[in-house]
């Protein structure tokens, strides 16, 4: 038996699980308030653009999105198996591919801001 290569994904899963546990509910509240139009006008193009234009802001956004994506992707791979789908290799390519695509999009968008 060979040692598994799953640690590379599990490391991102675990780090992402921790980050999403801390930040995602509050982020959802922010977008929910924006959706309800009930915020106090901080969620505007100017303020978000200024934050995303700052190098540390870019780093924070990239970190949160990257880890959220790879956390969700790895857990989804396991969940699909739990629902009885045994095509693990195909599922792995699909979910990690989706996470990779999201990572790439985030990178491109951040560089354009």
């Amino acid at each position: 038996m060979a040692k598994s290569n799953k640690p590379i994904f599990w490391g991102l899963f675990a780090a992402g699980g921790t980050v999403t546990a801390f930040v995602t509910p509050a982020l959802v509240l922010v977008t929910l308030f924006a959706a309800l139009g009930a915020g106090m006008d901080m969620f505007t193009y100017e303020s978000i653009h200024a934050f995303a234009g700052w190098w540390l802001g870019k780093l924070i956004i990239f970190g949160i999105i990257l880890l959220s994506l790879w956390h969700a992707a790895h857990r989804l791979r396991v969940t699909v198996h739990d629902f009885g789908v045994r095509a693990d290799t195909v599922v792995a390519y699909a979910v990690y591919g989706l996470a990779g695509l999201g990572t790439l999009m985030t990178l491109v968008y951040l560089l354009r801001i």
């Binding site: 999403t20 995602t24 982020l27 959802v28 977008t31 193009y45 978000i48 653009h49 995303a52 956004i61 999105i65 959220s68 994506l69 956390h71 969700a72 992707a73 857990r75 989804l76 396991v78 969940t79 739990d82 989706l98 999201g102 999009m105 985030t106 968008y109 951040l110 354009r112 801001i113």
Partner: peptide, 26 residues
Amino acid sequence: YMAREVTCIFIFAYTFLLIWGLGALA
């Protein structure tokens, strides 16, 4: 356990919402 595991689908979808917003910002 399964309820905990399927949270990933929502987190995945929400993260893409954030990416969509980021694209709009750009």
